[in-house]
Nucleic acid binder design. Sequence first.
DNA 1: AAATAAATTGCAAACGTTTGCGGTAACGTT
DNA 2: AACGTTACCGCAAACGTTTGCAATTTATTT
Lengths: 341, 341
Amino acid sequence: MSKKRNTTLKELSKELDLSISTVSRALNNHPDISQATKEKVKILAKQLNYAPNLFARGFRSRETHILGVIVPNIAHLFTSTILKGIIEEAELRGYRVIISESNNDERKQVDMLNTMTQFGVDGILMSLSRKTKNVDEVLKVLKRIPIVLFDKVSSKIPCTQIVINEEEAAFDAVEHLIELGKKRIAIIKETENSYNSEKRYAGYLRALKKYGLPVKNKIILSTEDISIGNGRRLTNILLSMKKRPDAIFAITDNAAIGAIKALHKFKVKIPEEIAVVGFSNSVNSTIVSPALTTVDQPGDRIGRTAVRFLIEEIESPSTDVMTKTVEIKTSLIVRDSSLMV
Amino acid sequence: MSKKRNTTLKELSKELDLSISTVSRALNNHPDISQATKEKVKILAKQLNYAPNLFARGFRSRETHILGVIVPNIAHLFTSTILKGIIEEAELRGYRVIISESNNDERKQVDMLNTMTQFGVDGILMSLSRKTKNVDEVLKVLKRIPIVLFDKVSSKIPCTQIVINEEEAAFDAVEHLIELGKKRIAIIKETENSYNSEKRYAGYLRALKKYGLPVKNKIILSTEDISIGNGRRLTNILLSMKKRPDAIFAITDNAAIGAIKALHKFKVKIPEEIAVVGFSNSVNSTIVSPALTTVDQPGDRIGRTAVRFLIEEIESPSTDVMTKTVEIKTSLIVRDSSLMV
DNA sequence: AAATAAATTGCAAACGTTTGCGGTAACGTT
DNA sequence: AACGTTACCGCAAACGTTTGCAATTTATTT
């Protein structure tokens, strides 16, 4: 499987009786080179199937045109949708992408960060692993190359951050329930103060406040791991109360689906007795019955804008690092779980 | 954002008053170097945070330790699970991974193939885009660097191919239905003769044959695009027949879910009147009700073995290229959609 | 025609690493 | 004392590209 060598500038130059530098400049459209030679060179290059050795180039120019991406877990539809956006946008702009996982392990996260810089990536796109406590290492890397955070971000890291308008989206979702006539709206959120959970909770509170509804701590439930099972479990608790809520806002589709399963089991009518709204617009939200009202997060848009900002920072001589938050608009998708006729 | 330079061999050598080559050899544990100097060098290297410039190294040695991966669509849970396996196994073995999408576009596929080789990847992992007609370009690349195919493969390309035991899995699924007492088993498959569809169909036929059941062409349905919608549509056709089937084997979870939705609408009892079995064990299969019996495909195992075989080919001087098919075992997961008590 | 300016092109260094080969010093052997 | 061995180390070339600067040719001006 001997790797055959590619055509090089030297070979082209020998063939054309030109210097290597002239050939190089001709291919790069340097103004110093006459139109005639440019043509000649390009034609032969095409004939011989010339392709620049990217390693030699990256080696010399100290630019690799590679972006590093670190996510907690790639095997997650929302994540892979973001990655799709990242890959497509990067390729569009002549960059390639190296992807790595942190598995929600903070140590692994800084490991990856370091190997990536060692590798010479031009910049890094990262979604923080859950419970990232110590950002010192990240800051150290940030001093050397640009980083853009997305989805799971942290205000402790001064760089541009791409998120969805969590707060507003949650507000919209709850407002939608209120407009339906619901007055006792429960929320299922995360115990851990993750950025996302906090913001969504804030949106929930703001909606209640705007419409003058009381905040009942009893129906504000939290769980460590926001899964289908726990959604189910917490909903059972809600159902056991003497005064049941008339709607559930789950911070996650999975939790919402768990809620629906629980309601189903106890033959509670959805949405008449209790309406349900989720967050994510995962595939499952259309599979479950009744179909789930949820917030659509445009994953590929997130990925694309993250790439745009990163490349911007890479290519422009660059201003100082500073926190800049970019919000991607979401939209509420109303389905049967909150559709009153 | 000026990229600060890393420490180089030269700097180490100057500091230690040794030659660059000695330092290099010391770090690489060359036998020519005394234990004492090795120690000295390594200590200073650690102190100064030395990390070899991978581009310079790759440039010189013509080995990049990068694997290229091409898949039709990353935003697909099964695919991203495979990728997870690929990334993890590759990192374990000191390789990095560049991922790219073909979007089921044959032209894009060869484009990616070419940029990847130009980029200098050591090998390529690929899942073929649907309807790959012309494999000439792939063969051309195969002459230069090793390729390993997975999931969507083709016998026209002489290389190692990692697949699941499609035929056997399908056989097991249908056998399971037969053991349930079902005698008139419909199948929903793809029109296009994809490798996967063909094999699963073959398994279906073999099971019928083994148990002496007749093959009824009427209840062998095909569709171009095997989606939820089409699963629904074809099931409607099955329901309109004077002699309905008593089970449906859908080649895909999505099609099976469509089938369940259709059956639900017409109040057909699952599995008593008609049982349903899918293929993939997607998340949805547990969300839909009744929960779907399906074939579990261990995505990360596929990814991991693909990487193992590829690296094997890269690092061993290599024998000739030839077709070698490796089958990963699946297992049938029985759920309510085929659970008769 | 000479001098100057403009348009092209070539030279050579540099990027950081690996490696074949030659060199030195110390040691053991006759 | 002369030689051969061994252990350790340095020189320098090479990988393919880009680029500042010098060199050459051509065109323009006086």
